[in-house]
């Protein structure tokens, strides 16, 4: 028995080694960098150990706090919309109808388009005064005159959120659909027998039994949305001013535009800590709900 566990260790060693090399080593390195002053463009400053100096600078930068707020706003708004729309789509796709396979495949098209391409498409629609968005809204009489979307904070968020919802709702819908298909049909039959309506069935059978799928979706989407970069980089560049800048763009700016390796690493560490914390929270929540079900 003992030799078997030893063999097991030997067998997983290469995998653990690879994980250490590609996950733990860069993480450790970034942590180390984050404690240093390391400005690639300013070699005259040297590369000294400054402890938590970079973190203190982050905490004192209103632009960082702003970017954190924008990220949270984007995450909450886009995920809420995606969950509602995704659930709706999943319920529709769960019904038996002709061409269901084709619809399920077609719905994935936005998800399959690279984010940068999708973002460019949305930018073209909203960019100029003569863009499609303005034309449609003017025709419908919703707008009185064409607006320049990307110079107001509020209107800049519209294409950003729309593009994200358009692109990721299919993903959410498919995850929820998988959950729906695990629900025992006999529950609905029994409920119908007892005279329960469709709304009662949705709120008392479907959604409670879909909790796991929803939690899994939330984990994936929150972590994804929190690291949003390419979509906003292409659509607004974080503007006007920095009023749509997410933390990932802030980090990119420090690290790759300004080549401040120390400071940028510190920002990356902060982002990592936040996403890690979120993941732990969710997994805890998931674990609790699993136990609750077993009882």
């Amino acid at each position: 028995m003992k030799s078997e566990s030893k063999l097991g260790l030997v067998l997983v060693a290469p995998a653990l080694g690879v994980i250490a090399l590609i996950a733990l080593f860069p993480l450790g390195w970034t942590l180390w960098e984050s404690l240093h002053q390391h400005d690639l463009r300013m070699p005259w400053l040297g590369q000294s150990f400054i402890g938590l100096g970079n973190f203190a600078e982050i905490m004192g930068d209103p632009r960082f706090w702003g970017s954190l707020g924008h990220t949270a706003f984007f995450t909450v708004v886009s995920i809420s919309l995606e969950l509602v729309l995704g659930l709706f789509l999943a319920l529709a796709m769960n019904r038996a109808f002709r061409g269901r396979g084709a619809v399920r495949a077609a719905i994935l098209v936005p998800w399959a388009i690279p984010t940068v391409v999708a973002a460019l498409l949305w930018r073209f629609m909203f960019e100029s005064e003569a863009g499609i968005a303005n034309a449609v809204l003017l025709d419908l009489g919703i707008l009185e005159k064409a607006i320049v979307w990307f110079i107001h904070t509020g209107t800049s968020w519209v294409p950003v959120i729309l593009a994200d919802v358009w692109k990721t709702t299919p993903f959410v819908a498919l995850l929820l659909l998988a959950g729906l298909q695990n629900i025992d049909k006999s529950l609905y039959e029994a409920a119908s027998m007892d005279g329960a309506g469709a709304w009662w069935q949705l709120t008392h059978i479907t959604i409670p039994l879909l909790k796991h799928a929803i939690l899994v979706t939330l984990i994936f989407r929150t972590l994804d949305a929190f690291r949003v970069f390419d979509l906003i980089y292409v659509l607004t560049g974080g503007g006007p001013g920095t009023s749509t800048e997410p933390v990932a763009l802030y980090a990119f700016n420090a690290l790759l535009q300004n080549l401040r390796f120390g400071y940028g690493s510190a920002v990356s560490v902060v982002i990592f800590a936040i996403t890690f914390g979120l993941a732990v929270l969710y997994i805890k929540g998931l674990g609790v709900s699993l136990q609750g079900d077993e009882r």
């Binding site: 463009r41 300013m42 110079i151 107001h152 904070t153 503007g239 006007p240 001013g241 920095t242 009023s243 700016n253 535009q257 300004n258």
Partner: peptide
């Protein structure tokens, strides 16, 4: 100045904020 690029980044943001009437 050697710090031009970062100086310019700050200026770009603040100028833009004023021109879009955020400030």
């Amino acid at each position: 100045t050697p710090i031009y690029t970062e100086l310019s980044e700050i200026l770009q943001i603040e100028l833009h904020r004023a021109l879009v009437r955020q400030a």
